[in-house]
């Protein structure tokens, strides 16, 4: 017999699947038409975590991370000399996944911000004939790697700790995202509207605390922090997307279809993992 938690997860999966299939036959209004397929992917991720195993899920997240990075690299203005640093940036993601899978927290935390940065900088100098724009290039490459390799990697590490931690995060972020889509606040950070979401997400975290194994205080705090982190992340990424030329009304493969739905996790995933690691103990 399936446990209660597994049944809840399957029910959510079925509901999102039905909505996603309906979207295929009669597309919803933008950007919901893009949001539901990406949400379906994340729910599939949770299904894999719960029923197949965290290891496979971490590698799926690795591919998702690489695809988002590919989209980012396709949109930034790169120089011909930047090919080796870009290849190194791609390679950093499976290495990070390996570190997550083997539970080497220190290695995971340090690898991208320290070693990948060193390596990409070194590789950028290897062609050795053009220094013009190298700082700009390294900044752009490492920023992308940081966002889509490192920050998303935290979701993978949360998965390793407990399959219900990413479930809590995905559920809370989905509520914040849907609220943002319907209320239509993307660029402007509205404290009032963010505060309205806090009781909802705090209660959801509390309701899931039996499975996430967080005590009441931690669950309430993390639930309350999520809308704030999502709002800040959406606001920051709004500017980034605008500079990348991503048209929110025409999200296409290679032009924001992956970056846009992932943006809400970029602040929340690292902060929640660090909170759990350092404060919860």
């Amino acid at each position: 017999m399936l446990s209660a938690s597994a049944l809840v997860l399957l029910a959510v999966f079925l509901v999102i699947s039905v909505i996603t299939i309906l979207n295929v036959f009669k597309p919803f209004k933008k950007p919901l038409n893009v949001y539901f397929p990406s949400l379906w992917v994340l729910i599939c991720y949770l299904i894999v975590v719960r029923f197949i195993g965290a290891e496979i899920a971490i590698w799926i997240l690795c591919l998702l991370s690489m695809a988002a990075l590919r989209e980012y690299f396709s949109l930034i203005a790169i120089r011909p000399e930047d090919r080796l640093p870009i290849a190194a940036a791609y390679l950093s993601i499976p290495i990070t996944s390996l570190l997550i899978m083997t539970g080497q927290y220190q290695g995971f935390i340090l690898f991208i911000p320290v070693y990948s940065v060193f390596i990409t900088a070194l590789l950028a100098t290897l062609p050795g004939y053009n220094s013009k724009g190298i700082i700009f290039s390294l900044g752009a490459i490492n920023f992308g790697l940081f966002l889509f390799g490192y920050c998303i990697g935290h979701l993978g590490y949360l998965t390793r700790l407990s399959p219900w931690l990413p479930a809590m995060l995905i559920l809370n972020v989905t509520i914040c995202d849907l609220f943002a889509i319907f209320v239509g606040r993307d660029k402007r950070f509205s404290l009032t509207k963010t505060l309205m979401l806090i009781p909802v997400t705090a209660l959801i975290s509390l309701a899931l605390s039996g499975w996430t194994e967080l005590n009441t205080i931690h669950a309430l705090l993390l639930g309350a922090a999520t809308p704030l982190l999502v709002a800040l992340s959406r606001r920051t990424l709004w500017y980034l997307e605008e500079d990348l030329g991503i048209d929110k009304q025409r999200l296409q493969s290679g032009k924001g279809k992956l970056i846009d739905p992932l943006k809400s996790y970029l602040y929340a995933a690292p902060v929640i993992l660090h909170y759990i690691t350092y404060l919860k103990g």
Binding site: M66, R70, E71, F73, S74, I78, P80, R83, I86, A87, Y90, S253, G254, K255
Partner: peptide, 16 residues
């Protein structure tokens, strides 16, 4: 950008 002239390593980058 994915495979320019005089390059041997194709990079995964979106094309249109």
């Amino acid at each position: 950008r994915a495979l320019p002239k005089q390059s041997w390593l194709p990079l995964p980058l979106c094309c249109s």
